[in-house]
């Protein structure tokens, strides 16, 4: 009883805190988040952890993007890794073969990936479910095979020598410095995903996911929403790809974009909560950390991943985000029931 009350107090306190921050300025919670995350490289024990933090930020971008199109808009896409590859290789080619700086290669990579995202989105007008899954899988694999057989893109030797981003003489050539590049982008990405998903557009996505026919009848432009969802997710993938390409050691290889990586990404989104607004973030963090902790047990890693996916789909379809939501809702429910008996005058805000 006592710890139920304590956890409810914690939840309420967080809610109140956020409300007060938002009262100051709508963006205040995000600024606070930025300030909390900014000193992370100094807090972490060693450079390897900073490397992991950078990698987590890139994965968060990918997962959040995938969650938008898959979790919120309900389009079954399993070729997302192909978009990631396109973003990464475009940035690589632009900066190495065309001599552009990171500040040019990044937007171009994002634009090219958006274009590719449109190509992936078109089949979604006609196909659903497993059919769409097959098409996107085929597209994703085709991208990888094309890269691995094309000399210009480095083929199987990989594409190396991607330079670190620079501003004047300052180069983002250590993991600590790079953190201050990826972390703000990640934060912006999460911020925009929240804005999108809590807006009318987001509700349109969810309508398309639940019942496209009913949505169309209600006036939602189903095709338009699907395309926008794909484009947004492609944009995220483009950013993630470009950031990954320019990260030390500036090397890309088609073997980094196989179906196994796709399954890992899927695990992140599913475990975090497919269709939950925090799903991508939670999943990316947990999967990367667990993967690192279990590195010594590489004999069993795929078994672990596969089993977690299967068990999550069966028993936790809303993922960890869903569990947290249920936890909060249960606590509040209990509090209401008790509040009537023991706390006169409390606001029934829960």
């Amino acid at each position: 009883m006592a710890e139920q009350a304590a956890s409810l107090r914690f939840i309420d306190a967080t809610e109140r805190g956020l409300t007060r921050l938002r009262a100051v300025h709508p963006l205040a919670p995000w600024l606070v988040a930025f300030l909390l995350l900014a000193p992370l490289p100094w807090v972490l024990l060693n450079t390897y952890h900073v490397f992991l933090a950078n990698f987590i930020c890139v994965m968060i971008l990918l997962s959040v993007g995938l969650n938008i199109v898959k979790g919120f808009c309900g389009q079954v896409t399993v070729g997302h890794v192909g978009l990631y590859a396109i973003g990464a290789y475009t940035a690589a080619v632009m900066s190495v073969n065309f001599g552009m700086t990171f500040w040019m290669s990044l937007p171009i990579a994002v634009m090219v990936t958006l274009l590719a995202g449109a190509v992936v989105g078109i089949p979604s007008f006609r196909l659903e479910g497993a059919y769409l899954a097959l098409v996107t899988l085929g597209l994703g694999e085709s991208v990888r095979i094309f890269i691995s057989a094309t000399e210009y893109l480095g083929a199987t030797n990989g594409f190396s020598g991607i330079p670190a981003p620079r501003i004047g003489d300052f180069r983002f050539d250590t993991y600590q410095k790079y953190y201050y590049l990826v972390m703000p982008v990640m934060l912006l990405g999460v911020f925009f995903s929240f804005r999108i998903l809590r807006s009318r557009l987001g509700r349109g996505f969810m309508a398309v996911r639940e019942d496209p026919v009913a949505a169309a009848a209600a006036g939602v432009n189903v095709r338009g929403h699907k395309m926008i969802a794909f484009l947004i997710s492609a944009g995220y993938a483009g950013f993630a790809g470009a950031l990954y390409a320019h990260m030390i050691p500036g090397y890309l290889n088609p073997r980094n974009f196989t179906v196994i990586e796709m399954v890992t990404l899927l695990l992140m989104v599913v475990l975090g909560g497919l269709g939950h607004i925090w799903g991508g973030v939670i999943g990316a963090i947990i999967v990367t950390i667990v993967y690192d902790i279990t590195k010594d047990y590489y004999h069993y890693s795929l078994l672990l991943f596969g089993s977690v996916i299967v068990l999550t789909v069966l028993f936790m379809p809303k993922g960890i985000g869903g569990i947290i939501d249920r936890f909060i809702a249960t606590r509040r429910f209990i509090a209401i029931r008790e509040g009537r008996a023991t706390r006169p005058g409390s606001d029934d805000a829960a």
């Binding site: 479910g129 004999h299 991943f305 596969g306 977690v308």
Partner: peptide, 24 residues
């Protein structure tokens, strides 16, 4: 199947099972 949660769930489950079976 279908566009239900079960439908997408089956697809995702299939991927997970494939990876797990490979490891087994």
């Amino acid at each position: 199947g279908g566009y239900t949660v079960a439908g997408m769930g089956m697809i995702i489950c299939g991927f997970g099972m494939s990876v797990a079976l490979q490891n087994v």
